[in-house]
Simulated scan of single mutants.
Amino acid sequence: MSDWFTKSFGSDYLIVYKHRDLQGALLEVKRMIDWLGLPQGAEVLDLCCGMGRHSMALDEFGYKVTGVDLSDVLLAEAKRMDTGGKVRWLKGDMREVPLADTFDAIVNLFTSFGYFEDDAENGKVLREIDRLLKPGGKFIIDFLNPDYVAASLVPESERKEGDMTIRETRRIEDGYVRKRIAISEPGEPERHYQEQVKLYRPEQFMKMMEGTSLEVDHLYGDYNASEYDAKTSPRIILVGHKEG
């Protein structure tokens, strides 16, 4: 499953995750703006931007936004929705972003981390954030909370989207949360996808940041700015800055 993301973030992803809406992204970005404390016109990188919901919300609030993602399908959807062409969209791997620019802030949202089996590969993402941030620049990493996931995991679910049936199974094993998705339609072969995210706790993020100039200033447990609690918080939201 080392390259599961090259298959999973295709056209079916747009259907499986279509419930993620722009209004929700706007509310989350409002909170992020408070945390980042940046003036309008600041340059922001949305690393692993997906369909671009947060990138476009950041643009709406007056920032100069670049969205980077590896998926051609998701970038095409982002460009389709960005009718004014306001965001700069770029294809790239988060471990080696094809940019020499530096940014006032970088956001990595909705568990767009932990995709790789090797800690060193996941650590490369943090080093890229370090490289791409201006001195004093801010970052936000929004990740799942492993203990909360373990306590609330729904092992199986099934739902309909028109004639399409989407079945999802979820489990935690070997330090990962893993999801298998089966999509069936009348007269079509069943399609299968796998997703996995390596589970990290805050102290493991801190360990991986050693050797970078990144410093975590605050840990939140959700977008209501609740303090992070290892047992009850749904998210681990790291807000910090680059020293220098």
Rank of each mutant, 00 (worst) to 15 (best):
P186S: 07
E161R: 13
E156Q: 07
R159N: 06
G136K: 10
D118L: 13
R127I: 02
P155M: 01
G187L: 08
T165A: 13
R170H: 15
A150Q: 01
F143L: 14
V125K: 07
T169I: 03
K124H: 00
P155F: 05
R127C: 00
R178C: 08
E185Y: 10
R171S: 13
D147K: 03
R170V: 08
R167Y: 02
I183K: 12
A151D: 01
R131P: 14
D130M: 08
G136C: 04
L132A: 05
L126W: 02
K138T: 06
A182D: 11
F139A: 13
R170A: 13
E121G: 05
L133W: 02
V177I: 15
T165W: 10
K124G: 10
R159Q: 10
L126Y: 05
S152N: 14
R131H: 10
G187Y: 03
K179S: 01
I141S: 02
E168H: 09
Y148K: 07
P135S: 01
V154Q: 06
I183L: 15
D119R: 15
R127Y: 08
A182M: 14
E121C: 01
R170I: 00
R127K: 06
V154H: 07
D119P: 15
I172Y: 00
I181W: 12
S152M: 06
A120D: 12
I183W: 11
M164P: 02
E168I: 15
E185A: 06
R159K: 15
M164Q: 12
S157I: 02
E161H: 13
K179C: 04
D142R: 09
P135G: 04
A151W: 06
L153M: 05
M164K: 07
T169C: 00
Y176Q: 12
V177Q: 13
P135C: 07
E168R: 15
L144A: 15
E188V: 09
K160D: 11
I183T: 02
E185S: 08
T169S: 13
P155K: 00
V154W: 05
G137M: 08
P135L: 02
R159G: 06
L126R: 00
S157N: 12
D118H: 10
G137C: 09
E121M: 08
V154K: 14
G175A: 09
K179T: 07
I140H: 05
V125G: 00
E156T: 07
P186N: 04
G123C: 01
D142T: 11
D118W: 01
G162Y: 09
E128Y: 07
R127V: 00
I140V: 15
P186Q: 06
I172Q: 01
A182V: 12
